[in-house]
Computed example of a mutant assay.
Amino acid sequence: MSGVMQGKTASHLRYEGVVFDLDGTLVDSYAAITECYNHACTSLGQPAVSPETVRGLVGHGLESLMEDAVGPAQVVRAVALFQERYDVICEERTTLLPGVAGTLPRLAAGGLRLGVATNKPTRFAVRILRALGLMPPVRAVLGPGEGIPPKPRPEMLLKVLADLGVSRRQALYVGDMEIDIETARRADVDVWVVPTGSCSRSQLMAASPDVLLGEFADLPRLLGARPAAGTDRS
C-alpha cells in the first residue's frame, strides 16, 4: 500500500539522514515488555495485565510506564525489577518487524545516514539492534538519560542528528506513535509514521504526520533508495 502524503510530494524530498523510533517501528518488543512489566507489578502486589493493555501503555519511557502502574512511591523499585528481567530476555524476545531487515541496508546503500532515537534506555536499544543485525547500518543510537530527557522533548532526536552530522532540514524521523510526531515537530524535523505499533492509522492521521506509510517497506521507493547488493528487498 502506498504512503499517504500530507502536504509533501515524495519525489521532491532530499534527505541525508533518517532517524527511527525503535519499539513498534523497527522491532516488536511487546512480548518482552509485557513479561517484565508484569514481573515488576506482581512483585509489588499489583495485578498482571494482558499484552494488549501493555501495548497501549508503552512509548513514554520506562519510568512513566512503571509509575502509572505502581505509583510514585514504588517506581524506583519497579524500574529496577523491570530492568533486571529485561536484561535477561530483551534479545531473545524481540523480533524485527516486517520489511525492516531489507529496508535499512537499502537506505544505507543509497547514502542515507541512519540513527535511532528511542525512549528505551540506550544500553538495551544498542543490545537489541546488535543482536538483530542492525548495527550497522544504524550508526547512532540514543535513549533518555545523562541530560537527555525522554520524547516528546526534542533533545534526543537533535543529538542523534548531530552525531550523524545531519541538519534538521535534511533529516527525517520515522516512528509509529503520536509522541513521535510531536517530537519531530518540536525538533522542526519532517516526520513519517508507520501503523505497526501502538497507534491505529486513524490516530496517526489525526496527528498530521507528513507521510503515513502503508508499510515499512515503502520507504526505499519513496526515498529513492537503490537495492543493496545481497539483501532481501522485502
Rank of each mutant, 00 (worst) to 15 (best):
A73H: 12
L204V: 09
H39I: 03
F124G: 03
V138F: 05
K120W: 03
H39A: 07
A225H: 01
T94I: 06
K120Q: 03
P144C: 05
A207N: 11
T183F: 05
P121D: 00
G115T: 07
H60Y: 14
P195G: 11
M66R: 04
A171S: 14
G133N: 08
L164H: 08
S29M: 10
L62K: 00
E155A: 13
G165F: 01
T53Q: 05
L107I: 14
T122W: 01
T9K: 03
V191S: 00
V19E: 03
R185G: 04
L129W: 02
L114D: 05
D68G: 15
S64C: 12
G24C: 05
E67I: 11
L26G: 07
A101D: 07
F216E: 11
V141Q: 10
G17A: 05
P220F: 00
D163F: 01
E16P: 04
R169K: 10
I89Y: 01
D210Y: 00
A184S: 11
K8F: 04
A78I: 13
A40C: 13
V58N: 08
A187L: 05
R139F: 01
L134D: 08
P136M: 12
M177A: 15
L62A: 00
A171H: 11
F20I: 06
V166Q: 02
K159T: 14
V141M: 09
P154M: 08
L222K: 02
D28G: 08
A217M: 05
L44R: 08
Y30H: 13
M5T: 13
R77E: 15
V19N: 03
R77F: 04
G230H: 07
R153G: 10
D163G: 01
E91K: 07
V54R: 12
G17W: 02
A80L: 02
L65R: 00
L223I: 07
Q203P: 06
R169V: 03
S29V: 14
N38D: 07
R153E: 15
M66H: 04
G133M: 09
G3Q: 08
M1V: 15
P209A: 01
L96G: 03
G214K: 05
R93S: 13
Q170S: 14
R226D: 10
L142A: 12
Q46V: 15
A32S: 11
L172D: 01
T183E: 05
E16H: 14
Q6T: 15
E84F: 07
V27C: 05
H39R: 07
D176K: 12
E16I: 09
L219D: 05
M177C: 13
T94Q: 02
P150L: 10
V166R: 02
V194P: 02
A140D: 10
R93W: 11
G165H: 01
V193Q: 01
T53Y: 03
P98C: 04
V100Y: 00
E67H: 09
P227G: 09
Y173T: 14
L132T: 13
V75N: 01
L81D: 04
L112R: 04
S2A: 13
P136T: 15
V75Y: 00
V126F: 02
P154Q: 13
V191L: 00
E67W: 06
A187W: 07
L157Q: 10
R139L: 13
L222R: 06
P105Q: 10
V193P: 01
V116D: 06
E52P: 11
T103P: 09
A206Q: 11
R139V: 10
Y173N: 10
P98S: 04
E182S: 13
G7R: 14
L164Y: 06
R153W: 12
V211T: 09
S167D: 14
G133Q: 08
I179H: 08
I148Y: 01
